[in-house]
Design a protein around this nucleic acid. Structure first.
Lengths: 107, 107
DNA sequence: TGAACATATGCCAATATAACCAAATGTTGT
DNA sequence: ACAACATTTGGTTATATTGGCATATGTTCA
């Protein structure tokens, strides 16, 4: 049975996953594995409006994945819970498994 | 720079994450850690329309997270890449970190 | 063959997300 | 105080997701 407690817990977890479940946000989170970045750096690296990038970072912030630091005019974001990226090797395994199957179908 | 290749890769990964980023789907995936389940079992465990459950399972299937097996009238789903659940301990760490911070604010 | 059952699919309405532009906020240096 | 800059916020529109209902498909058993 999916209890009320289960539901609440899964909603909380889903929120975190959802935050990472966007190509741009995921990419930015991965970049932060190398250390903090300011919003302006992302603006140069990603092809999207400045405000769009800012909003994506806000989503990551609200999910508890990143934290930030205002220094002067700039805002620096960094990973708060770096383990989120360790998961990516598994996600890649899922993708590889799919690709393999599709390749097998073509044969 | 977020290259075209980066983008494609992140889109693929995001698709997998997105599939898990729904409370009901996440819960169902977690249940499958204990072994396969048929759709009818989920129907008894989750408070949602049968068709809704079926659709959620289809999303997990298309993301490559689960696979199924038709046996008689029933369809059994099981985890295809079990490591996806290992990530949950990290997701829980994110949540705990948030809860702690909020608790600290109240003090 | 036909009834009973398990699951999937199509359609639709409600809601959530994403992106851009324009405008607001906050900071630094003059 | 003002101009220049970095970032956030609000408004709007386009698109995607979700969930339920009704319907279709496929299987078993009599």
């Amino acid at each position: 049975m999916m209890t009320k407690k289960d539901k609440l817990m899964c909603e909380a977890k889903a929120k975190v996953l959802k935050a990472l479940a966007h190509p741009t946000r995921l990419w930015m989170a991965e970049q932060l594995a190398d250390g903090e970045r300011c919003v302006c750096e992302f603006a140069n690296m990603v092809d999207a409006d400045f405000s769009t990038i800012s909003k994506h970072l806000t989503v990551l912030k609200q999910a508890g994945i990143v934290e930030y630091d205002k220094r002067g005019k700039q805002v620096f974001y960094r990973l708060k819970v770096p383990c989120v990226l360790k998961f990516m090797s598994c996600v890649e395994a899922v993708i590889k498994s799919e690709v393999k199957e599709q390749a097998a179908l073509i044969e």
